[in-house]
Design a protein around this nucleic acid. Structure first.
Lengths: 214, 214
DNA sequence: AAAAATACCATACATTTGTATGGTATTAAA
DNA sequence: TTTAATACCATACAAATGTATGGTATTTTT
């Protein structure tokens, strides 16, 4: 079993994880020293040794940026959820982010994508459940048939988008729903972004449950 | 727009991505040189320059391992799917892996977990669809209420597991299904592993569709 | 046919990076 | 209270790493 970490060690470990998520590679000793205003790398070295001894990281000697974070599974990084979508309602973007999800540290999200929590079970036809968190990339570009978050007449929908020269069709996964068709130039229509993926906690013992049996 | 890559450049880019996935950090020039049997790093440097010019990677000068792969969204890495689960059927583990999924390169799966493709729509009650790929961690340990893949009487199921001193209950997400209850010591029962997550392609234009309308 | 891009080599050099050693001060454990 | 562990400092050094330059040979483009 790995022992308890001290405050400083925790901070450094977190910094490492977030550096990896942000930049795509672990920091060097200098990076860490700089971040914590250490005047030299030797200090960092000692903390890393401690972290390694306590089995939180693994390093390869003499190799730069060779910090591997062990047990990344149980390491969660808190990420802000910037808003909510619920079919029928307008899209909600919070001014001050209060809500957040703990995503596995290994979920390395693309830059400038953001997270939205799905409210209401009305997305069920797209097999997206209440409280699922969807990853949205706010690009103006989207391919034919891509799943997008769109605002139609002030209401949010998650649908597949198809467009031709004149019309845009928003199609549900469920064939029973008739497609929404709007003019390209319609002012009551706006694509927020494309849905890159969804995150759903399948583990037990975490905040939410898929079903709260009646 | 980024231009076409040459064969060598493609190989090197792929090596970089896989190095990142395997080790958690990008390779150095030496690493790459070693892998491709180059006698020096200068050669690699030139290829990297080309890759950077064509906008496939970004580097920070003088910084070790600072290769960032741009556009990781559209970069897919092929990963083996080692088997299939379908409720009612026994678990299938292929001897020779033929099937594979292209996972986004950024999906950095935990070591020793494996992928299973879900067959049949009978997992629908757990909101897992046909052809979804689930990520299974073959640990012996599982928590109360965790979603697991289990074999009961030679049939595979994906259910939440609860156990007490005597019995093990396998509960479906859907309350209409009555739980399966087995004795702890039952020989006809085995937990394969816990389901860490599921991967479902939401993008259009890729191999599979969620629904093939009738 | 000439120019440009590609794919490699070798060697030299400056920086970055990790490591080692020795020191001070504070807090926690035996 | 003595010993560990923690948290920092400074300086020195070797290994790893990125870069620069100049060269040859082959393929692709103009």
């Amino acid at each position: 079993m790995s022992k308890e970490l001290t405050e400083t060690q925790k901070k450094i470990l977190l910094y490492i994880v977030e550096h990896i998520n942000a930049k795509g590679y672990p920091p060097t000793l200098s990076d860490i020293a700089l971040n914590f205003n250490y005047r030299n790398r030797a200090t960092v070295q000692q903390h890393l040794k401690a972290l390694e001894k306590k089995n939180y990281i693994t390093r390869t000697r003499n190799l730069s940026r060779s910090i591997e974070v062990n047990d990344r599974n149980n390491l969660y990084v808190s990420r802000p959820v910037v808003g909510e979508v619920a079919a029928g309602n307008p899209l909600l973007i919070y001014q001050d982010v209060v809500d957040s999800v703990d995503l596995p540290a290994l979920a390395n999200l693309p830059k400038n994508s953001f997270l939205l929590r799905v409210k209401g079970s009305s997305m069920k036809d797209a097999f997206i459940l209440e409280n699922d968190v969807i990853i949205v990339k706010p690009d103006g570009v989207y391919k034919q048939g891509e799943l997008v978050v769109a605002i139609v007449d002030d209401s949010a929908v998650i649908k597949r988008i198809y467009e031709d020269d004149e019309y845009i069709r928003l199609v549900s996964e469920n064939p029973e729903f008739t497609p929404i068709i709007v003019h390209r130039k319609s002012k009551n229509f706006r694509v927020i972004g494309s849905v890159l993926g969804l995150y759903r906690t399948l583990e037990a013992g975490r905040k939410r449950r898929l079903h709260r049996s009646s």
